[in-house]
Structures are given as structure tokens and as C-alpha cells.
Design a protein around this nucleic acid. Structure first.
Lengths: 125, 125
DNA sequence: ATTTATTTACGAAGCTTGTCGTATAATTGT
DNA sequence: ACAATTATACGACAAGCTTCGTAAATAAAT
């Protein structure tokens, strides 16, 4: 039976998940190359992190060939939901509205996003 | 010169900051009592955490009397801003709008909050 | 075929977090 | 005054994260 993912990815694990979500499947080498454009760590570091993530159940992998192919085992949506919920609790006293206000104050969304948000808000009323 | 606060409070540190933000000033005992209603850790644990937070510059303290009085040294607003920004980057590809959509999908804000958000959105257009 | 390169596996070290025990100093109660 | 309580300081430890070096196995290149 597959182990239940814990849903508390660390900073580095999130970076890796980002790549996997974006690419679907990827080898350690591919993930590492992509991270290298942003970060500065050795190949074996990325490898080790992904091995640990596999033990935790955060990713699954196909090791039928010598070069293993990895894939995220937690969805982006669920992870976002979980992390946002946690943040609302620990930093915004349970108020999603407060978080929204803060987010909008920090970075202005595009016109299109604004329209989308307004549509959603209307439907919530 | 006061050390610059690092702005990456841990989970436990956030719990303590929450109490300090709410009360303004508080002793270790007071913070601990309040946390004890939610959490289960010894007094010296809270003490140690607050001492470390002091070293980091996350809190300041008045130790003119035997019982030290602590106070947050980072504002709730700045901390929220920083944490939200980080989350937008690591989980939402830099899009605040996406975070907002997710937050609204997770927990419905009150009618009053919705109105507030809409007002803010209009002003952003 | 032999060398070179790639990949995984493993172990270890340094750092941070969270936990607590114990010692010491100060305060309070009787 | 003496005992009991309360506070700080300090050290230590387990667990987890991140880092990397090295060894062994496989694949590719010459």
C-alpha cells in the first residue's frame, strides 16, 4: 500500500514539486538542471532530496530503467489548499478575507485576474 | 545597534508572536499560559524559544526587573506581507491572483469582508 | 575492450528546531 | 529566618533539513 503523503513539504521540497507539477514527469537530472538556474546546489543534493521525498510519499517514481523517472504524488491544488489554510490559521486568525486583503496589497493582479476574482466574489454573496 | 530580524519565523515562533501581537507586552509566564490552552510543552521550552527569538531580534525585552517583559519586534503587517509574498512565489508562480482564488475557495469570508475586498479590487482597476 | 561519463545509493557532517533537566538567583510565604 | 516558589540561564539531546563526498553499478564513447 502506498504511504500517505504528509503534506508538509519543506522549502526545498516545494521547489522540486514546482518543477514536477510543471513538467509532469522528470528525471533527477532534469529537475536539477532547472533548479540550477535559480539555486546553487550539487547534483547529489537534489538526488538525495528526491529520494527522501520518495520515502515520504511526496513523489512516486518509475525505476524500471536505470535512470529513474519521478512524478509528483501530491496535487498542486491540494497542497495549495493545505498551505493556505495553515497560513490563514497561524497568521490571519482564521480569516481568509484578511489574507486576501494582504495579498492584494502586496502584489497587484492582472486586470483579467481581477475580473475573475470579482466574478467569484459575486457568486459567494 | 539592534540586529535585523530575519523574517522567517518558525511555526512555534509564530505562535508566540501571535500572543505578543495580541497582548502588546507579556512575560514568559503569560505567553506560556496562553499557549498551554492550545499546546502542550513545558515552561522552559517556551522560555528557551523566546530567548532564541530575542537573539534573532524577533522580540525585544525589558529586563530591568527580574521578570523580563517581552514585546514583538516585528510587526504583524510586515510579517504577513513577507510570508504571503514568499508563498506566492513558491506555490503560486508569482501570481497573487491565484492565491486569492485559492483562499476564497478554501474558506468563505463574511459578507462584510467581501464588500471590503470588492472595494479594494475596484480601486486597483 | 577500456576508458569516460552518468546514475544511484549510502553515509556523514553542520545547522536549526523543539524539547527538557538542572543549576542558580531572586522572590514570596509562613 | 527558612522553606517553597518562581525566574533565568545554560547545556544537552533527538529529530529533521540540507549539504556533499565517495563508492558501486550501469551506460556511452572511443
Amino acid at each position: 500500500m502506498a504511504k500517505q503523503a504528509p503534506f508538509k513539504p519543506t522549502e526545498s521540497e516545494l521547489e522540486i514539486l514546482q518543477v514536477l507539477w510543471q513538467r509532469g514527469k522528470a528525471t533527477v537530472r532534469e529537475v536539477h538542471e532547472e533548479l540550477a538556474t535559480v539555486k546553487d546546489a550539487g547534483y547529489t543534493t537534489t538526488l538525495k532530496l528526491m529520494q527522501i521525498m520518495h520515502e515520504k510519499g511526496l513523489v512516486k517514481r518509475n525505476d524500471s530503467s536505470k535512470t529513474h523517472v519521478y512524478e509528483a504524488n501530491v496535487s498542486k491544488e491540494k497542497t495549495q489548499q493545505h498551505m493556505v489554510g495553515k497560513m490563514v490559521n497561524t497568521l490571519f486568525e482564521g480569516s481568509a478575507g484578511q489574507l486576501v486583503m494582504r495579498a492584494l496589497g502586496t502584489a497587484k493582479p492582472s486586470r483579467q485576474e481581477i475580473d475573475e476574482i470579482q466574478k467569484l466574489l459575486d457568486s459567494l454573496k
